[in-house]
């Protein structure tokens, strides 16, 4: 298992390098750069020196390697310095956002909690809705409940989150007035009232994303339960005289959860991508909103870094899913 994990980790390095090169080159072709913002009244030789000072005249490969060094050495070292008071990254140039001239990772550090609160809760709610639906649908296959569950999943797949979110805003915020239409990032939770406010403003984005996630996960749960329901060990358990509850919720459920857990792990990077839409719709000031803002402002370092972080998440959670599968299911051995 350890060798497998190590081998997969090593294999992830070339994949990530290739992806980082693609992202770097793609974004590097962008027409907008801080050079184009230099006023035309600046004399050509001064302009040339400014470009040289920013390093923008270096060949692409040099800039790429420098960017990699910043991403993989300077930024982690800065983080380490912040925690333990060391001075490893002192005097090093960090990745700077062109919009705000502050380090990209500082901005991401400020935005990430917003994303994690909303998206994390939404995913959790989605899982908590999906598992019972999937379990009961499988237990009573072809029943009215199962058909309802199938319809729910099909609608959940098909209605895009930007539409379901808009519908929720119209129904629950505009017509009924239960929840605010926009998420207030400034809200500080320090007492009961502000906590209620936080719950209220989180309700709509969490509902939107949660339902979309629940649709997919409930299907996986159902089919995984169905696979296990017909197994010999289930018949044995019933023959031993175990209660139906024990058979389904202990024997079948535990075995059925194995593939579902990996599916849940695989879905995590995708929900960060989906969060871009939800964050924009509800005005959550998270990393998805930061990405859209950076794209509209031609903030190249910010776009590169965020896109690469998304890619790292995908590769990382693929790896986690594979390892989890091996850990949870003793029948699977990779060596």
């Amino acid at each position: 298992m350890l060798t497998f994990t190590l081998r997969r980790l090593l294999l992830a390095i070339p994949t990530l390098l290739a992806i980082s090169l693609v992202i770097f080159l793609l974004v590097d072709l962008a027409p907008g750069s801080p050079m184009s913002e230099i006023p035309l009244t600046v004399p050509p030789d001064v302009r040339q020196r400014m470009i040289e000072a920013l390093g923008a005249d270096q060949p692409v490969i040099v800039r790429y390697v420098l960017w990699l060094r910043q991403f993989f050495w300077v930024e982690p070292a800065t983080l380490f310095d912040g925690w333990f008071g060391t001075t490893w990254a002192e005097g090093e140039q960090r990745i700077l956002s062109w919009q705000s001239r502050s380090p990209v990772f500082t901005i991401i550090g400020q935005r990430l909690p917003q994303t994690l609160t909303v998206i994390g809760t939404a995913y959790l709610v989605g899982i908590l809705i999906a598992l019972p639906i999937g379990i009961y649908s499988a237990y009573r296959q072809y029943s009215l409940f199962d058909q309802g569950g199938t319809l729910f999943a099909m609608i959940g797949f098909s209605v895009p989150t930007f539409f379901s979110g808009t519908l929720f805003i119209i129904i629950f915020a505009v017509w009924l007035g239960w929840f605010p239409t926009k998420y207030d990032t400034q809200l500080v939770v320090n007492d009961w009232d502000s906590f209620i406010k936080q719950i209220q403003q989180m309700a709509l984005p969490v509902m939107t994303l949660g339902l979309a996630n629940a649709a997919a996960i409930s299907r996986y749960m159902r089919s995984s339960m169905l696979d296990n329901m017909g197994m010999d060990y289930v018949r044995t358990a019933r023959a031993k005289g175990l209660s139906e509850r024990t058979v389904v919720l202990k024997h079948v459920l535990r075995n059925s959860l194995i593939p579902v857990v990996t599916v849940i792990a695989l879905g995590i990077p995708a929900i960060f991508g989906g969060a871009i839409i939800t964050e924009n719709l509800f005005g959550v000031n998270g990393i998805g909103a930061a990405l859209i803002g950076a794209i509209h402002a031609n903030d190249i370092p910010m776009v590169q870094t965020l896109a690469f972080i998304f890619a790292v998440l995908i590769v990382l959670f693929n790896l986690i899913a594979d390892v989890l599968y091996g850990l949870l299911d003793p029948r699977i051995r990779y060596d």
Binding site: L26, L29, G273, I276, L291, I295, H296, A307, I314
Partner: peptide, 16 residues
């Protein structure tokens, strides 16, 4: 390609 973050990349492609 499966590991590429598609929505961000599509947005960047369209913008560029």
């Amino acid at each position: 390609f499966l590991a590429l973050p598609l929505i961000p990349l599509l947005l960047v492609l369209v913008m560029l």
